[in-house]
Design a binder for these strands. Structure first.
Lengths: 399, 399
DNA sequence: CAGGTCATGTCAATCGTTTTCGATAACGTT
DNA sequence: AACGTTATCGAAAACGATTGACATGACCTG
């Protein structure tokens, strides 16, 4: 198996058709115009003589798609034990002799038995599926997804993804499907990354991830906005800057306030008096940030550095600086917050402070697993944002 | 419900706790240090007098998390019909009197019954889940995911996501979990976006999405690499460029060849003779592209425009141009391929040719649904790449 | 009015597991 | 030698739905 990336957005498949040593090449059916729509059938290779169970249907046309699934009954029969025993072996429960265990395992691998998740879910009332609700698949959820799926690997759980972008048909689809699943029968627990007002009637444990929670909202996992902003500002101060502008985030979001507070605290600790003129309105969006950057730079005594409440705003400021013929970081240092992918791609690459998305996802999973295990989970606290100095920050001019 | 984005990477939650009018505020349990880990219990409000079914357990402490799930039996009993009838009503099958249907529906909504997907899957041998296998959650799969999940909405299917990045523990996890699911019992069909060599023993229909398939590989869905490259090159030609460089993609990938062929065909049709010096090695990666760009620009007669086989390479070229003090597009026009998110963020924003990821995802779903319905699906052919002219391409200097 | 059709419903088997509980045999103890 | 303990295993009842076969009237036809 080899995986080849064209950075992060190109994927290459070398070969998708079955090449396993045992079995044989799977038949590719319905192959019109170079299309690959195959129904690869499982080919069984019973090596012990279990009559009439695996090879009952083997028509002349090789490899019909069907082929009765191997059940626990088949295994039990072949191993000459009861289904209960097979179940015990499969689930590693106590009370079966070593010899029996070995035999059952052998038969299982010979028959290629795989336990039916559906059937076992029905009986055990756990589906071993956790759901994630995102508003949309975008870079933010993406980082989380990677963390979540990586953490889930190695556990018994699979990940069901619900995207609730409400573009075309309103949110009828989302509401009826995704949210109903929370109270439904399919998932054991959920991680929500959506700005929904209500999570109705959930009968399963839920963990919320949210970088921009409102002040009154209970939070599960988020980044330490305050200390991240502090770090960013401190970075600027350490480079000798004293007039440091700030482009704020959305005023109704807690993160924006926390980030501004971090900024002000850093200034204060450095003995730099806060100048209201230097903290300018923004809303985390591009346009407002452009305006803010202009206003900042139009000041009679403009800042030598800007801390923007998020990368998008920082990128906007970077663009404004370019338009004005300012050298970055020569004439103006800029630092953002989030470390979105585009931050590394700008020219010059943007200094910023990173949200540990992967880690946040991992923490969310761990919390959820704890809840599912009935443990008394506790919040990991705010996750640290780490400084990512790149090339938009440099020493203050000593003139 | 309100959704607020800080562009595409910030999500804001206003309130996650239940606020439904019926029922009551759900209890938030385990609330240490501002954490939100709630088990919101479904509160039933039986309005007809169905004795002893919904309110059996109602301890003094309000809202215990549990509460026996209401099953089809409960509904049947309450509606005074048989379970078969309820089943028929739920599944809209023929043979139930209108009055009965109404009654059952009423009871269902009163009791808040939701069919157990697990149980119905067991009997009907369909799980109504389709799986997607991605190598990693990155921008490419992201676009697909959006298309896929949007298309899936409105169908009966849910989406199970498997990421197979093989970072930490090798690919043991991926192999044993994700791929085994293909032959397993959980999903009805799969869309694979992974560079795996083997898809072993799949007993379900599979559709492959792949932008960079090797020449011999059967393909389900991909973009028209040839015509996309043709379009990009043509764009440059239309702007008056005649010396057009090309930074190639990975030599072992079909897409790279197709893109180069498209480039050469456009030149040919415009009566511009192909100059081998102008087509330079690359591998879709940043570093090689930087080298290629330098080589191209070091030519005694350097190109006035460059078509890079992907955006990453184009961005690299853009950076090289900047380092060399070249104005883009004044001195040099650049166009890429893919339209990755970073393309819109560069300065100046990168002209490129877009892969219709959303559409590709939708097509994949439609093909898969067709296969699942037993239809004779056929490939939609290569999807068109569309020109996205931004600001890195301009008229050729007439000197 | 006997027999047939149609519209409605119900019965009971079934899907593949898990899990409780009892049966059996082997063994060690007095 | 009789009895109590273990260790091992199987029988059978769930789990919650689907489904085809059948039952029951009502209604129609000739």
């Amino acid at each position: 198996m080899s995986i080849v990336f064209d950075n992060v957005f190109e994927i290459h498949c070398e070969n998708v058709v079955e090449r396993s040593a045992i079995g044989r090449h799977a038949p590719v059916k319905s192959r019109n115009s170079g299309v690959f729509c195959a129904t690869v059938s499982e080919v069984m290779t019973p090596q012990t003589g279990i009559p009439g169970i695996a090879n009952a249907q083997q028509p002349q046309s090789p490899g019909e798609p069907s082929s009765a699934r191997v059940t626990i009954n088949d295994v039990a029969r072949a191993a000459q034990v009861s289904v209960s025993t097979v179940s015990k072996v499969v689930n590693g429960r106590y009370g079966v002799a070593p010899a029996t265990i070995a035999k059952v395992h052998q038969v299982i691998s010979e028959l290629g038995y795989e336990t039916s998740l559906v059937a076992s879910s029905l009986r055990s009332t756990r589906t071993n599926i956790i759901g994630i609700l995102v508003a949309e698949f975008e870079p933010f959820s993406l980082g989380l997804l990677n963390g979540i799926s990586a953490t889930l690997r190695g556990t018994q759980y699979d990940l069901m993804a619900y995207a609730g972008n409400l573009s075309p048909e309103g949110h009828a689809g989302w509401e009826r499907r995704s949210l109903s699943r929370l109270g439904g029968t399919l998932i054991d627990g959920a991680i929500i990354v959506t700005p929904t007002v209500e999570v109705p009637h959930s009968s399963v444990p839920v963990v919320a991830i949210d970088p921009h929670a409102g002040p009154e909202m209970p939070i599960a996992i988020d980044v330490d906005n305050h200390s991240g902003a502090y770090t960013a500002t401190r970075h600027l101060l350490d480079l000798g800057h004293r007039r440091i502008g700030h482009i704020r985030g959305r005023g109704d979001l807690a993160s924006a306030h926390l980030r501004e507070q971090g900024y002000r605290q850093a200034l204060e600790e450095a003995g730099v008096e806060f100048d209201g003129q230097l903290s300018h309105d923004g809303d985390y969006q591009h346009d407002a940030a452009v305006q803010a950057a202009h206003d900042l730079l139009d000041l009679p005594q403009p800042p030598t550095a800007i801390f923007a409440a998020n990368d998008l705003s920082a990128l906007a400021a970077l663009q404004v600086a370019g338009e004005r013929g300012l050298q970055v970081p020569g004439d103006l240092s800029i630092i953002g917050f989030d470390d979105i992918p585009a931050a590394a791609q700008s020219s010059p690459p943007l200094s910023t402070v990173r949200q540990p998305l992967h880690e946040m996802g991992a923490q969310a999973v761990n919390m959820l697993l704890g809840l599912l295990a009935g443990e008394d989970v506790r919040s990991p606290g705010h996750l640290p944002a780490v400084l990512v100095p790149r090339e938009t920050t440099g020493p203050a001019r000593t003139s």
